[in-house]
Design a binder for these strands. Structure first.
Lengths: 331, 331
DNA sequence: GACGAACTTGACATCGTTGTCACGGATCGG
DNA sequence: CCGATCCGTGACAACGATGTCAAGTTCGTC
């Protein structure tokens, strides 16, 4: 900046004014400064400015997701980024892999860089460790999973309702021996989906002792193995509810490997690309990750703009998409 | 930091030393400082430190991809992030949507934040605008597409070779009327893939006048429309080579809609999730986005660690995955 | 026991920018 | 035509950290 000032023959403060588009700089001076800046390829250093600036905003957000390689996270990320870029805000993205340690590591990395706010999916059992940061004024918006041990904004899917809808759909098609195949019990979303499943099973008067409930399947491969064993067992289910997209894909692969895809019904939680073209096509309870991202960033901006109302949790509805696999009747 | 120093009863420089894990601080002092820091929930401010630090490293990278919602970008991103997190480096991610303007916007946003390096997929016709930044010492690694107008490291797929392999595969299965269905001609990768296709067609002695070459299909919908019109035309191809994953999905949907998926062969460039379970399963030339990301970040770290050798372009091989759709013979 | 080396510590300038304030000149209303 | 206001501008301190350097302390060796 000093160099630009020297080249333009003005004070550094004037350069600062021009670079920030402040008023009350003559057109001639503005032109001279801009020319000098262009000649020297000068770019403002936002961080140096932040040091002295009163609002201390880095115009940077931290986004923590399960994995940036997961399509659900990708859609959310994209929505966040689209809104952020319009306000000149850059987004740090990080994957925590449902690993509490990695979550803490990423959050620390974000905080060290003085992000203006955090949008996060968490894997820790409690997010109380963020309390000091929150009271220090950093807005937090939790996505996908509601926070524990801290009161903050959240945007989540209607996990229990969606799971119940999927389960009811199977029950309405005549099933009573429905297996639950799901992700880690440590995850709040997985627990909620299981709860929705169980409650619906209960409402239908089906004894829970009769049904298999498999948990802690954290990858496609694990789900494949588990479902393979399940349907080859002695009391195989006539229908399966899978509570997460990787698990759904594992289940699809297992059923097809055994040639059972037309005999055992399947409803998945969360949509999967191309699943509408399979034979049978997969009935799912679709989430709306893009919408979750949109609402989260909207909430974030409201907070950054001074909204001090009580934290709220927004529930984004899921949608049952009937395609075939969920309408198979028990044989 | 001042507060921590005061609470611990030491000078700020000592706090700085403890927080940065420097040697030559007594155990007792270290403990006192750490305790004070914990009590005040103090986190280092990397940007303030950068101002004075000699290396001026923000320990931050900028990653520009087509879209963070695209699985190809997601896999690349994940590989970059995994390596970065180990070095305590945070990653800004941004989508440029093959929009040159958005590319410039994102790059500016990154540079303003003084990233230590840029890993980028570009949409501009020339990246010469990065020359000053490069000579200023910021390492650049281009991914997916080789740079134009600037000499820098790059990691790309063997686009022409892969396309030729796919085309040869179709020719070997008896096809001579093979359509090319591809993305925007403005994209270097799309041009390369088309070149590979054309050269292979030429090698087989097939007159180019006979074959349809559709371009500028930038979404699944556009590809769907184009393929629908193509195969309904008066001289429909017996095989299709689609040069990008969204285009492939559009083509799949079009063929199935018309019930032609078992009559017209299809080979896609870039793999698509679940495409192995379709009927027929889709034969593809798979890229290796994770590997591209790994090599790119490796290159980046080498540069940051002082490697001043001449820029190189690493070509990551593609793999033909035979699944069914590409082995349909002409009727 | 003395002397130098090694260790521990803090004062202070400084990084690039913005907030504050003050100054001089132009403009305006009566 | 004069005083009041407004506009354009720059000098300077300060933001939170680190580099430099010097001072005080401890330790080891002959």
């Amino acid at each position: 900046m000093k160099n630009v000032a020297a080249l333009a023959g003005v004070g550094i403060k004037t350069v600062s004014r021009v670079m920030n588009g402040e008023a009350n700089v003559s057109a001639a001076t503005t032109a001279r400064v801009n020319e000098a800046a262009a000649q020297l390829n000068y770019e403002l250093d936002v961080h140096a400015g932040n040091l002295k600036r009163l609002d201390r905003r880095s115009r940077t957000l931290g986004l923590l997701v399960g994995s940036v390689a997961n399509p659900f996270s990708g859609a959310m990320h994209r929505a966040v980024e689209d809104a952020a870029i319009e306000r000149g805000i850059a987004v740090f993205a990080s994957s925590m892999d449902d690993n509490p340690e990695r979550e803490r590591l990423s959050v620390t990395a974000f905080l060290r860089r003085r992000v203006d706010g955090l949008i996060l999916t968490t894997a820790t059992s409690s997010q109380g460790y963020l309390l000091p940061e929150q009271s220090h004024g950093t807005p937090l918006v939790f996505v996908d999973r509601a926070p524990v041990g801290i009161d903050a904004d959240a945007v989540v899917s209607d996990n229990a309702i969606g799971a119940a809808t999927a389960t009811r759909h199977l029950i309405e098609h005549g099933h009573r021996n429905i297996a639950y195949v799901g992700d880690s019990h440590a995850l709040q979303t997985a627990r909620e989906r299981r709860r929705g499943f169980q409650e619906e099973i209960g409402r239908a008067g089906i004894p829970t002792g009769d049904i298999a409930q498999l948990e802690d399947l954290h990858s496609e491969e694990a789900a494949f193995e588990a479902v393979t064993r399940l349907v080859a067992g002695e009391h195989p289910p006539t229908a399966i509810f899978s509570s997460q997209n990787l698990v759904t894909v594992g289940a699809i692969r297992a059923l097809r490997r055994l040639g059972l895809q037309h005999r055992i019904a399947l409803v998945g939680f969360d949509d999967v690309e191309l699943s509408d073209l399979l034979e049978p096509a997969i009935t799912v309870v679709a989430q709306n990750p893009r919408r979750i991202g949109e609402l989260a960033i909207e909430r974030m901006f409201a907070r950054l703009d001074g909204d001090h109302s009580a934290p709220s949790t927004i529930v984004v509805p899921t949608t049952l998409i009937v395609r075939g696999s969920g309408e198979i009747r028990p044989s």
